[in-house]
Design a protein around this nucleic acid. Structure first.
Lengths: 214, 214
DNA sequence: ATTACTAAGCAGCGAGTAA
DNA sequence: TTTACTCGCTGCTTAGTAA
């Protein structure tokens, strides 16, 4: 990968470049033998194509190599450019119907409409995320989102929640985090329509949630 | 670096994240011991800071770590985003005064003004580039630049050259490549003013040339 | 000059395990 | 459960060298 990056920086994405294994070795701060081996490996992986002359070789990055670089680039982009996006990958699970009870309640529904700009379909889409991604939830909580106030009704208190506008498998919606009870690994999503139906999803299906900050 | 990237993707740039060496190992497809060692290394390099609890550790990327990631990101940016820029790093060398003779010649000077949009100070700033960067010159030639036609004068032919608008240590200018004679490792720069004087440069000083394509 | 083979040496990996 | 040590083994690196 490091080698591929170095080749790309020398212009090997657009052109054949002339580069001896010795020169590459210098660039990578390693030995000529190792540099030569790296090139052989990239060649085997079909990430570069080479024309070996007697005294020089021409190297160009193939589409496979270019894709690998793009993936890497994409990661860094996510780190720096898209600090206003947080991506979760999880899978659909069934709740116990309590989402419908809560989100359908006027006390929440009115606030959702006012603060989120859409009338939420009653019910939540529950997405089980990887345990490791709990750190991203922490990130969201620190960042702060759209606050939905607690309220009293039916002789009890309905707790406050924090919402974040999000895109769920490409559809507009939001995620809902209870103000209390940190560290769940299930994200509850609401949306203007019944996502489970419009996206024709079943339990276990992969769900990508892109949370839009700010 | 790979580890640091992974931590950043989990949000460790903005926050402390909770991550066991075992979890990190899964993420990196390696053993718990190796993951633990990676974290120790990053800690030693002061790229991350850790709070070691008895049953969990909190990790955050430090400014040093963040800089390292930024550098990496910058490389990829250069590969993908800035394909319309080519960066050379070299050092100032002395020519033999012939630059002044040529660029001062009306046959060239008039074309420079017309095609580049500035009156070139008579004389060239010669920049010795790394041998390995000759590939970037090849890239430029393939790309095509601003053509300056050959002309007859004083009983001889003055050969055609190809120019590229460039920024030389932050100053507006251009580089001049002879149409013939490929593969030099000296770039000749022209500019509206005497760069050597305005930038107070001497032989051996580093020069950054950013060529603007298109 | 090159590239790249073989072989030896050494660094990094992970199993086992302590704290 | 954790983290991280020791240590044996594997595989990567590089010196030497052929083509």
């Amino acid at each position: 990968m490091q080698t591929l990056k170095e080749l790309a920086l020398l212009g090997a994405m657009q052109n054949k470049i002339e580069l001896s294994s010795h020169e590459l070795a210098e660039q990578l701060q390693t030995s000529q033998q190792t540099a030569s081996r790296y090139l052989l490996e990239l060649d085997t992986l079909e990430m570069i194509s080479r024309e070996l002359g007697v005294k020089k070789q021409m190297i160009q990055i193939t589409s496979t190599g270019s894709e690998a670089l793009e993936n890497e680039y994409h990661s860094y982009k996510q780190i720096f450019d898209l600090t206003n996006k947080v991506v979760f990958n999880g899978k659909l699970v069934s709740g116990m119907g309590e989402g419908k009870y809560y989100t359908g309640h006027k006390g929440y529904a009115d606030q959702f409409e006012k603060r989120l700009g859409f009338v939420a379909y009653p019910g939540t889409l529950n997405v089980q995320i990887e345990y490791i991604e709990r750190n991203k939830i922490r990130l969201l909580r620190n960042y702060g989102g759209i606050e939905i106030e607690e309220f009293q009704a039916e002789n009890r208190t309905f707790g406050g929640v924090i919402c974040f506008k999000a895109t769920i498998n490409g559809r507009k919606g939001a995620i809902v985090l209870p103000k209390r009870s940190h560290y769940a690994t299930i994200l509850e999503c609401i949306a203007p329509d019944n996502l489970r139906e419009t996206l024709r999803m079943h339990d276990g299906d992969p769900v990508e949630i892109i949370v839009h900050l700010q």
